[in-house]
Design a protein around this nucleic acid. Sequence first.
DNA 1: CTGAAAGCGCTAACAT
DNA 2: ATGTTAGCGCTTTCAG
Lengths: 343, 343
Amino acid sequence: MAATIKDIARVLNISTSTVSYALNGGPRTVPEGVKARVLATAADLGYRPNRLAKSMVTGKTSTFGIVPPGTSILAAASPYFQIVLNGILSAADEVDHDVLIFTGFRDGNEDRFIDNVLDGRVDGLIFLAPPKGTQIFAHPELTKVPHVMTNCWLDCSVPAINCDNEAGIRDALKYLVELGHRDIGMLYGKLDLDDGIQRHAAFMEFMTDAQLPIRAEWIKDGDFTPAGGYTAAYSLLTQDRIPTAVMCCNDEMAVGFVRAAAELKISVPDQISVVGFDDSPMASSVHPTITTMRQPLEEMGRAAVLALSALISGLPVRNQTFSTRLIVRASASRPSEDTKTHD
Amino acid sequence: MAATIKDIARVLNISTSTVSYALNGGPRTVPEGVKARVLATAADLGYRPNRLAKSMVTGKTSTFGIVPPGTSILAAASPYFQIVLNGILSAADEVDHDVLIFTGFRDGNEDRFIDNVLDGRVDGLIFLAPPKGTQIFAHPELTKVPHVMTNCWLDCSVPAINCDNEAGIRDALKYLVELGHRDIGMLYGKLDLDDGIQRHAAFMEFMTDAQLPIRAEWIKDGDFTPAGGYTAAYSLLTQDRIPTAVMCCNDEMAVGFVRAAAELKISVPDQISVVGFDDSPMASSVHPTITTMRQPLEEMGRAAVLALSALISGLPVRNQTFSTRLIVRASASRPSEDTKTHD
DNA sequence: CTGAAAGCGCTAACAT
DNA sequence: ATGTTAGCGCTTTCAG
């Protein structure tokens, strides 16, 4: 039987309220002597506060809820989730909160899911890259719990933490153009996610504005994964005519691309330049190291915690858009003269 | 104001116990008509069960607690954590549990940490690769909550989920020897973790038993990271005499090794063979793809959940050791005649 | 078959 | 300065 404040009170012949105040250091003041004795017997009895009971009366839990990206729990295997989660954990740690990951978020499961997130275990929720078509944000009951989201732009009032995908893709492409590239292909992915959609659209827009050729056979779906990028790269690189550069909409695809190129003995960047997106750990681990647009995912995770904390405190919270930054590494260079083509 | 069972009871002029039984489908049976009306008004009122209250009386929370690897929260950034967590999440999902990640586990912080894990929010705990010297398992109060651990061999009664590091390293080295290698180096790492220690020790033992040369300058600390592996590889590969093969005690280091080799224009596997450990996502994403000993981390995460569930149910739980399996890819081959040296 | 009520452990308003 | 007590929302024993 675990000790409770009642036990401490009984032992010391004082009231539970005094014990509570002594233990919590307030709001009521307790004489030093009494406080010391309370602490001592608490230690003696092996007393451990029960946070369920405390939460029930205070309405606060000191835990943040997280909803992993996508509808599938498998998304938890992505570097994206890993890095954002890491930012969330370290920020949560700093404010003495723990983090509850909700598992049951699936299409058609909305009501049970809502039951879960409203059941009192968390003070608020962070949705990580929720899937595009989800109905969850339309659920009237969801407003009962404070929530923010990352990497998703919805026309609703949920505070969002995003990175500027459009500027990121644009800057990456500008860099390639400045290097002298005109024939630029793209590996896109995950068109059910806002990041996927926006990066794809930004590519199209830039190429159109810059009056550069958009060739369908140079634009492939790489699924945001190394394996997808590898397959897409193979089908792209085995064509008669290939671009001098490829924009990969995330680093995992860029890694897959570079591997395919190596197998095909196409040198990166001598014969084809590659630019990635995210600055994921893989990008700096492979040969050649991948030039990429850094998305500050860890900071975004931290920002999500801050925004959620503010929201919970009743403070106003605005959307935040983080800037991307070009990280120049080894996978992109000037196109060599003999690979250049002219339309 | 959220609706409670009291509200439902009041509306229908029945008792809260009937409402509770209707909602839960037992243990007491409730006439269909009443049950239907209870469910209807529950929906009407937007009733959501409060799990804190429920947990307080039942003592069950439907949530598992996780303690990330190492003492530093930063360990959450490792592929190890990511993959095991993924296994845990999917297994937890299947048994309708959520997962609470505890943040405050640090040396010297034991007592606050114990407060946290004993505060009633979880039914049990999974320690992921706890640091070697931790005092936490000696804490008498920890026995109050069921717990298991992964990737850690301690001489205590905590049920452990491990992989057979010794056999794994041995099989990897056997494979290299069968290919014809005798001059074998090693990149080890994290000697504060059991996995790190055991793999290091297994290498030494195998080499001794097989009467193969152990050369200190071929044995480097690569910190289990790509960057560490890269640095270690540089210092290893820029020596006058280099081995024909290198055992990397995890795949991240192998990836770093391969990158360094590429930069130094040392061909893998033609000039030097590399074998990794874990079969982490990176291993199959780089060029050349890394031959590795697969450690079934996702299954181990799932097994941890199963073991913990059993423990919580009061069932006996034994240690489990998972076998590793050689995954032959492209980074290891027979040594070429001209790289072979003879002592 | 159903209702009343105790109680899980805690906080805080309300006494004194 | 301290004690008493009413809940928080729920489950379940005990009465009827």
